[in-house]
Amino acid sequence: MYPIRHPSHSLSLPLRGQNHHLRQWGRHLPGSTPLLLLHGWMDVSASWQFMVDACPQAWLDQRLVTAPDWRGFGQTRPLAPAATHPAENPQAYGSADHYQFADYLADLDALIEHLNTDLGRPAEAPIDLVGHSMGGNVAMLYAGIRPERVRRLVNVEGFGLPPSQPEQAPQRYARWLDEIRALRQGTLALKSYPSAQAVAQRLRKTNPRLAPERADWLATHWAAPDASGQWQILGDAAHKIVNPQLYRADEVLAVWASIRAPLLVLEAEADSLGQWYRQGEYTRAQFHQRLQVLPQCRIERLPEAGHMLHHDQPEALAALLQEFLA
C-alpha cells in the first residue's frame, strides 16, 4: 500500500446548499498565504496526496493547504435529508440532472471567504490557487473575476475548450435535452466495479504511468462500495451531461485579461490536446496563443508525464510550486 507521508484531516463545510468535504494539510501561521488545490473533472481532492507528500515538512509547517471535493464529486453532498454518507449510498448526490459551470466559481468564492474568516484574515484577503484540468479552468476564471483575491496562480493542464460558433447552439441545446432524458431513463450512468482492485486497474488503464501502489490507494478514495459490495465511482453521473451553453473563447480571454496574479502554467510532455481533439480543432499552440493576454505568464513542461501530471511527477510538481509560491 502507498505509504502516506503527510496525512490529511477532513472537515465538512456547509456552503451554498452543499456539505462540502475538504482535506487539509499543514498549518496556518500569521502572515502566511493559504493554498487551495482544485481537482479536475471526475476526480477527488485525495488526488493531490502524492504531490503533498513530496513537500518538505518544514514547508507544510508554515502553510495551510486545503483541497475541496467539488459539488457532485467525492464526499461533497447536498444539504438535504436524502443525502447519505458515501459508504451507505455512494451516488446519493441529490436530484440535480445537470451541473452549471458557474456554480464552481460561486462555491470557490464562498469557500475562500469562509477560510479567510476562519483564519482571522479579511474575507477578501488574497490566497494562492492551484487547479488541475477543470480545476485549472475554474482557477483561471476566478483569478480574472476576483483579481484582488489571488496572489499566485498555477494552472496544471487546464487548457479550456475549442472555440465555438453561434450556429452550434441549437444542436448543443438539443444534445443537452437528450442527455438529461437519458440520465432520467438510466441509460447515462457511471460504470461500477466488483472490487477496489478493479477500480485501481481502471485508473491504471487510463494512466499507465500511475504506479500500482498509488493506484491501489487512490482507488479507495475515488470509489466506495455500495450495499451490494459493488464499487461505485464517487461522482454524479449528471456530470456527463454536456453544458447547454457554448464555450465562448472570446469571453474567457476577456476574463483572463483581468488576471493580476503571476501565472505558472504546467503542462505534460504528452500532448493531451492532441489526444482529445481532431487535428487542428484545438492545439497546444492555440492555447499558448490565448495565454498571450497574460503578461506575467510562465510555462513549464514536465517530461515523462501525461494529463494526470500530479500523479506522474508529484516531486517535480511540488518543487515547482514551492519555488513559484515562495
Rank of each mutant, 00 (worst) to 15 (best):
V65Y: 03
Q230Y: 10
R27C: 14
Q75V: 05
R204D: 06
L35C: 07
Q49K: 00
A87D: 02
L15N: 01
L264Y: 07
P314D: 06
L203F: 06
E315V: 11
P86T: 01
A224H: 08
P303M: 08
L234N: 07
L294K: 06
P225Q: 15
R184S: 11
Y93H: 02
G40H: 00
A67Y: 04
L321C: 03
K191T: 15
F50T: 04
A237T: 08
V293W: 01
M308H: 12
E157I: 03
H288T: 13
H132T: 03
W176V: 15
E251N: 15
N19T: 09
L60G: 02
R181P: 09
G135D: 00
R301G: 07
S133E: 01
A196T: 12
V154K: 00
Y99G: 09
R298S: 07
P56Y: 04
D226G: 13
H28C: 12
A227P: 14
S47W: 00
F324Y: 06
P170K: 03
H20P: 05
R181H: 11
C55W: 11
S8A: 08
L105T: 04
L141Y: 09
A189L: 14
L105Y: 03
A110M: 06
R172E: 10
I299H: 00
Q18S: 07
Y93W: 01
Q313V: 01
M42R: 08
G306D: 01
A326I: 09
Y193T: 05
A125P: 06
G94F: 08
L15R: 01
Q201F: 06
P68D: 06
G160Q: 02
I145A: 15
S272F: 11
V242Y: 04
E269C: 09
S258A: 15
E315G: 10
N116T: 02
G74M: 02
K240L: 15
A316E: 12
A196H: 13
I4S: 10
Q245V: 15
K191M: 14
F73Y: 05
V150W: 11
W25D: 02
S95C: 15
V242R: 05
P244S: 14
V265C: 07
P147C: 13
R290H: 09
A196D: 11
H132G: 04
R146Y: 13
W256P: 00
A227T: 14
S47N: 00
G274Y: 11
G144N: 07
K205N: 12
G229T: 14
S47G: 04
Q279S: 12
S45W: 00
P81W: 12
A238W: 02
A143R: 10
M140E: 03
P295K: 10
Q18N: 12
L264G: 06
W48H: 03
P7Q: 02
P86Q: 02
Q289I: 06
A219D: 03
G135I: 01
